[in-house]
């Protein structure tokens, strides 16, 4: 869900950049130096996981997992998503420099909202973790699609039909992401419960510093 350069209007680009800058500032401020490797390397893990193409009916869609990213990284979702998008803008020219703010916001803000809603629940046992996982995956995509669609619709009357199409196209992806995120959360709860600790996964504790 990258919006390309040259599509959005100046006020939309500016507000996207402002929210992204604020989110980055909060994310970096809450982040201690001892977690920088973790955020960078998990961001790389998520980037690679998004290479997985899941069949949906006759087509395929790549994983987004921004809901799960929110559960694992909390406010650090902003820098983690920003680095991934910036790299794509520079290396493959997907998205671009002026749209970096809007694209970061439309993926990272839903991640933070999902974190605030579900991070407690995701640490629970059994059915609770499944519900939290499905909710995180589903709402992560739903909010993202709404924000992308809103950014397009706010840029001009001409984009109203594209804006609707964006939401319709993402409905099947919401369900797939919901199911996959539920399975992943249950899996992580079994093998690495510390990863679901949200804001403070215990690196320093487990490392026995």
């Amino acid at each position: 869900m990258h919006i390309s350069e040259g599509v959005l209007s100046a006020p939309v680009l500016a507000s996207g950049a402002a929210v992204a800058a604020a989110g980055l500032a909060v994310g970096l401020k809450k982040l201690d130096y001892d977690r920088l490797p973790q955020v960078g390397i998990l961001a790389a893990g998520f980037f690679v996981a998004s290479l997985v193409h899941v069949p949906i009916g006759p087509t395929k869609a790549h994983l987004v997992l921004n809901g799960l990213l929110g559960l694992l990284l909390g406010w650090a979702a902003f820098p983690a998503i920003f680095v991934g998008l910036a790299l794509q803008a520079v290396l493959f020219q997907y998205g671009g420099l002026t749209t970096l703010g809007v694209n970061t916001t439309s993926m990272a803000l839903p991640a933070v909202v999902v974190y605030l809603l579900f991070s407690r629940l995701a640490q629970g046992q059994g059915r609770l973790a499944w519900v939290a996982g499905f909710g995180a995956g589903f709402l992560g995509i739903l909010f993202s699609a709404l924000m992308v669609s809103g950014a397009l619709a706010a840029s001009g009357e001409a984009f109203s039909s594209v804006a609707r199409l964006v939401i319709v196209a993402h409905v099947p992806i919401m369900f797939v992401e919901g199911i996959l995120t539920a399975v992943i959360v249950a899996f992580l709860g079994r093998v690495r419960p510390a990863m679901l600790g949200g804001a403070s996964p215990g690196v320093s504790k487990e490392a026995g510093r």
Partner: peptide
Amino acid sequence: AHLAGVLLVRSYDRA
């Protein structure tokens, strides 16, 4: 899902 999960666990351990 398990593929993505294992990938994330390995990222975390490597970190």
